[in-house]
Write a protein that binds this DNA or RNA. Sequence first.
DNA 1: TCTGGGGTCCTAGGACCC
DNA 2: TCTGGGGTCCTAGGACCC
Length: 423
Amino acid sequence: MFALVDCNNFYASCERVFNPTLRLRPVVVLSNNDGCIIARSEEAKALGIQMGTPEFKCRPLLQSHAVAVFSSNYPLYGDMSSRVMMTLAALAPEIEVYSIDEAFLDMTSFARFDLTEYGRLIRKTVRQHTGIPVCVGMAPTKTLAKMANRLAKKNPHYLGVCILNSEAEIQSALERTKVEDIWGIGRQWSKLLQAKRIESAADLAAAPAAWVQKHLHIVGARIQAELQGQSCLPMELVRPAKQSICTSRSFGRSVTAREELQQAVATFAAKCALKLRKEQAVASLLTVFISTSPFDESCDRYWGTRTASLPRPTSDTMTILKTAQTMLDGIFQEGKSYKKAGVLVSGIMPQAACSTTLSLFAEEAPAPEPDKKIMQVMDAINQRYGSGAVHLAAENSESWKPNQEKLSAKYTTRWDDIIEVKV
DNA sequence: TCTGGGGTCCTAGGACCC
DNA sequence: TCTGGGGTCCTAGGACCC
């Protein structure tokens, strides 16, 4: 038996925890750059505000209904997430943290308990410890637990807890779930399935296995088996090591000057290096990309990207930054209006496993290993005095930085922000 | 005026190996 | 007519997730 615990409207709920005057007001949270709507409270959903809508397109609606609008505050959401997860970890023998606002719990050993009662206890405890409302779905497979959770969210009569245990309960849930609402079935596959008259989860569960295998491959076959009650997706208790790490941003305005792009790329490269060190890992490949706006129809889209090997697998900010700068020169074209840039590191391995492999083709003696001590000291200072307290001179976000006009306080991670709370 | 960011897995096809 | 059999590795592209 699996439980899926999912926070309701997570980002909007985080904003509410620290501002009770928002309790009955519609709340939305915007993406980076204050571009799109990425979270909505129930009241905001009721106004017809759609997920992913550009903010400027529904601004009149937001204003006329006095919707509380927030820039995204990831330090706050990340910290609230870890509080929710710590609470959940104490309520079940095993937990898989699936995303910032969801976790699977192993309920196998709870067979003799009243699962509905236990689901209610989970809700109550998380609410009490963190202020965040959650819904709970339980079923014999992860895919069915996801479906149960969705039903608990959509139908108030469940009071936030839906258990699918008997054949009859499962069959009824399958019939009430449309194919596009199944976990793992996206837009393309929905289209394909609907064209084949496979419209509900019950239809998919009953579809010929050979057809599913042929058109939706192994992934679809697994979903079908899970719908039939056969568990194919086990709990993943340890987070697998990352295979790639990306830092990218859209700019608050168009950027044309090479120097500004250099500053942006330097900042992203430094961020990637920092993320690598936090993973205690090193990377061997580096990708830099820059692009113009996909929405600007007055000129062709330009998407410049380049990938290169790093001189040696590393997490050293200076090495990664310098390499990224060189690569930028190869893709930068004069006279274009750039709207986005990013840096991606891949070929990642644990730092411990990285013995120094020398290049076969190096014509000069290898550059000396960068001094790891410098990075350690830099990270320690930033840890103590706040990120950005020390950084390389090449990093600078003054000119291209994203818009964040409606940012709330970092209530739980920054001492200075606590005094911002006004009652 | 204005449109997010960060990931994963799978497949097909080409190139290679013995 | 008809051209083996059994693999691995890599990459691009497509699908999906939150």
